[in-house]
């Protein structure tokens, strides 16, 4: 029972991280119908920036905030400079541009920081927290907390601010929004910025667990895809919940189903994606998109 609870909590922690990255994917997808394959590498690069600042002597939380700011501006600039010229191109062209972005960021990180794994500090104490008879990692609990804060912030932003409302409008109906005076192009750019910011949080929370290296987000990106698929690509809340479910299932299956262990973990993600897509393609909380013929 104790092992079970521990696995669930650590599953929730990694699940929260998957959920954050899934949320970043969903935000861009909703606004532009594009799945940003470079999302993971953008998060990885932001985490390296945080590492540089912490190594230069900045306190952790100062570096954290600075990284978020840089990630936001970076995402915004990438949308304006790289994505905008192909905005109206066929969808596959945009996919290839995203892939180009992915290899550029990956290669740059390897060039600047080398491919050797680096430890990344956790802002939370190392001593585990004991509740009753169950031992929880402090970083696990902290990561869950940080993820929740980000979610509440985004919810409030989209629900209660003018900019959030404008962004939702731009995503839902670009031409009407434009007629109302919303600068749709800039709303998309802000969306990319916010997605990069959320991704940076995910990167900094996952780096203490998986260690920092240029390829660290590869596996996590696929779990984020699984989460977004499970929750539904049209539902931000669903993506986060999907992340939590994926995280917990991943841990429980790895612990209790002997022949899977850690070797076939990615295959679990593949199976989940396939099952969801075949049984209910719109995900648990997404709405089915109806096309007019």
């Amino acid at each position: 029972m104790e092992i079970f609870l521990q696995q669930v909590v650590s599953g929730l922690a990694t699940g929260g991280i998957y959920g954050s990255l899934a949320l970043a994917l969903v935000m861009i997808y909703q606004a532009t119908d594009v799945v940003n394959y470079a999302q993971g590498e953008m998060a990885m690069f932001s985490t390296y920036l945080a590492w540089t600042m912490i190594n230069a002597g900045l306190p952790y939380w100062a570096a954290f905030v600075a990284t978020l700011a840089i990630a936001f501006v970076g995402g915004l600039v990438i949308e304006r400079v790289v994505i905008r010229p192909v905005e109206n191109a066929p969808i596959l062209t945009i996919v290839i541009v995203c892939i180009g972005l992915l290899v550029i960021l990956n290669s740059l990180a390897g060039w600047i920081y080398s491919y050797i794994q680096k430890p990344f500090p956790s802002p939370f104490p190392e001593t585990p927290i004991v509740i009753g008879t169950v031992v929880f990692g402090a970083h696990d609990l902290g990561a869950i907390g940080v993820t929740l804060v980000v979610l509440v912030f985004l919810y409030v932003f989209f629900r209660y601010t003018m900019l959030g409302l404008a962004m939702r409008a731009a995503a839902q109906n670009p031409s009407s929004s434009r007629l109302c005076g919303i600068r749709v192009g800039w709303m998309l750019a802000v969306g990319w910025g916010l997605a990069a910011l959320v991704g940076a949080v995910a990167g900094m929370m996952v780096a203490p667990i998986v260690f920092l290296d240029p390829n660290m987000m590869g596996g996590i990106l696929i779990y984020a895809f699984a989460s977004a698929t499970l929750g539904g690509f049209t539902s931000p809340g669903g993506a986060v919940l999907g992340g939590l479910i994926v995280g917990v299932v991943e841990n429980l299956v790895g612990t209790y189903v002997r022949f899977i262990g850690t070797e076939l973990k990615l295959t679990v993600a593949l199976t989940m994606i396939l099952v969801v897509l075949v049984v209910k393609p719109s995900g648990l909380f997404g709405r089915a998109v109806v096309h007019r013929v």
Partner: peptide, 24 residues
Amino acid sequence: RLEGLYLALATFALALAVPQILKY
């Protein structure tokens, strides 16, 4: 049953899982 993006995702997951399955 899958179109566009969803098919891309499913096949992407397949590509990621292949090395692991081969090693297994």
